[in-house]
């Protein structure tokens, strides 16, 4: 069922070319580019062009007023001496490293709980998914801030159990847990994808394992994990990349400043502040390119290491 473009091309070229076919091919090429035009235009004008420009700008000092001034690698070298930049890296990395696995663990655990033929499964699935739809909105950021504020429901709930943390919003060591809870709360989207993946695992595998006397833990590691690994990989990759780019909720929760004490100064927020608040567009462009490079490297590492733990159906084991 997998039709990759490569396969199609191979089968097409295996037939000897006929004059009529080659005319057809020319027509196809024209039609192909015509249909592709909207995307191609957008790709060149909105992605490739701007990427080249921002690469150029990243080597300049550019404040929007005066023409860009070429300064070579200065922006990049300054970055690593900029304490705020290093702080933003720290904030973002801890968000990605703690938030993403927690979110995916919750998603997987709950997907496994829901993966049964019980009544109400559809309802739970929808209910758990809902936060993913609204989680990135300004409204939710506002509500989150109110909920975790002084004498908000979270503070009161914890006080009931004798834990007096006060409001989380103003406490530099509690804002990160708060942001992580906000992303974990949106476990619904990866959960639904996990659930679809779990349904693909043939039931007889589990039955056979049961007969061999395998317990739930062994079944999980011997069947569920390897069979689900492509889906886990997909979710991990997408969630990690998304986590690097968090912006709106951090902006709203910290009043656009990344406080308290820089504890919510996410990478993209600092990039925005540097570019659009301090007007250091060259510096911000350097930050953007560094992000592209880092995300690229992480993607590469993911794909490289995936060979050892991701099993696609049809692979020989």
């Amino acid at each position: 069922m997998t039709q990759s473009p490569t396969l199609n091309r191979r089968s097409a070229s295996s037939t000897p070319p006929l004059p009529r076919k080659s005319r057809q091919r020319g027509a196809d090429a024209r039609a192909g580019y015509t249909f592709l035009l909207p995307w191609l235009l957008g790709f060149i004008a909105l992605t490739v062009g701007p990427m080249i420009s921002s690469l150029y700008l990243s080597f300049t000092n550019y404040n929007l007023f005066d023409p860009p001034k070429w300064i070579g690698l200065d922006n990049y070298t300054t970055l690593f001496q900029d304490e705020r930049f290093l702080q933003s890296v720290g904030v973002t990395v801890s968000y990605v490293v703690f938030g993403t696995p927690m979110k995916l663990a919750a998603a997987l655990a709950i997907a496994m709980l829901l993966n049964s033929k019980r009544k109400g499964q559809g309802f739970y699935r929808s209910a758990f998914y809902a936060p993913s739809l609204i989680g990135a909105s300004v409204s939710i950021a506002i509500v989150w801030k109110a909920m975790f504020g002084d004498s908000g429901p979270v503070d009161q709930g914890l006080s009931f159990f004798g834990i007096n943390l006060g409001g989380w919003v103003g406490n530099p060591s509690m804002t990160m847990p708060m942001m992580i809870l906000l992303t974990v709360w949106q476990f619904g989207a990866p959960m639904v994808i996990f659930l679809a993946g779990l349904k693909q695992i043939p039931a007889d595998l589990y039955e056979a394992a049961s007969m061999d006397g395998a317990g739930p833990v062994r079944k999980f590691f011997n069947i569920t994990w390897p069979m689900l690994s492509p889906v886990i990989f997909f979710n991990l990759l997408m969630e990690t990349i998304h986590a690097f780019q968090i912006f709106a909720s951090a902006y709203i929760i910290s009043n656009g400043e990344g406080g308290p004490a820089g504890s919510t100064l996410f990478y993209t927020l600092y990039l925005y502040l540097r570019g659009f608040s301090d007007f250091r567009m060259g510096y911000a462009s350097a930050m953007a390119w560094l992000l592209v490079i880092v995300v690229g490297i992480i993607t590469l590492i993911f794909f490289r290491t995936s060979k050892s733990w991701v099993h696609y159906s049809g692979d020989s084991k």
Partner: peptide, 26 residues
């Protein structure tokens, strides 16, 4: 089927993973 299709397709997939902050300033 047209020449360059798989290259363009690959580029499109790459834009899925591209942090869009790199294009907002230009």
């Amino acid at each position: 089927k047209f020449p360059g299709r798989s290259i363009f397709f690959g580029m499109m997939i790459a834009t899925l993973l591209l942090p869009f902050h790199v294009v907002i300033i230009p």
